[in-house]
């Protein structure tokens, strides 16, 4: 007799628990404004990343094409996986001394782990985070970038 009752109470309990769950899903079904799906490629124009978003490492240049990098190579030594290569150049100064400048600041996005050590360790704040995140390309070599723009030079107020 006992098992007979248990059989029916089990069925009742099962249906009740299912209905409790379906109450939740039903609520979302009838309140579509609670749905949070983003239509990604369509909303591209409106999509705004947070200010601190780590998309890629960039070197900001001002309007006159000046950057702040002295070519000291500290970021290169601090990078844990060799994503940064610094190629230095020497130029003759008017007073006869030679000065070190940056020739190429090469950044391999494909190897970067976005740890932020280069940006934190740069003594002259030459690097920053960029907001671009759509990095897919057809060829891996396109992921190696030269961060200092062609024709750019170092801003005057930086002293080493």
């Amino acid at each position: 007799m006992n098992s007979f009752f248990k059989y029916f109470t089990d069925i009742f309990r099962a249906v009740k628990s299912l209905l409790t769950g379906m109450k939740v899903t039903g609520r979302y079904f009838f309140s579509p404004w609670e749905i949070v799906t983003q239509q990604y490629p369509e909303n591209r124009n409106k999509l705004k990343m947070y200010d601190r978003f780590k998309g890629e490492v960039i070197m900001p240049h001002n309007e006159q094409n000046f950057h702040r990098c002295t070519g000291c190579g500290i970021c290169e030594t601090n990078c844990p996986n060799g994503s940064i290569e610094i190629i230095q150049d020497r130029i003759d100064m008017p007073d006869g001394k030679k000065k070190r400048i940056i020739s190429k600041h090469i950044y391999h996005l494909s190897m970067c782990t976005f740890c932020g050590l280069c940006i934190k360790s740069c003594p002259s704040n030459a690097l920053a985070w960029g907001q671009k995140f759509e990095h897919a390309v057809y060829d891996r070599s396109k992921l190696s970038k030269i961060l200092n723009q062609p024709g750019s030079s170092i801003i005057k107020d930086i002293v080493e």
Binding site: Y50, R52, T113
Partner: peptide, 19 residues
């Protein structure tokens, strides 16, 4: 993402404090 810029792999703590 708002505070540290990334969603999964943050590297936010540094020895001695925070990034």
């Amino acid at each position: 993402e708002e505070s540290f810029g990334s969603r999964l792999l943050h590297s936010y703590y540094t020895p001695g404090g925070l990034m």
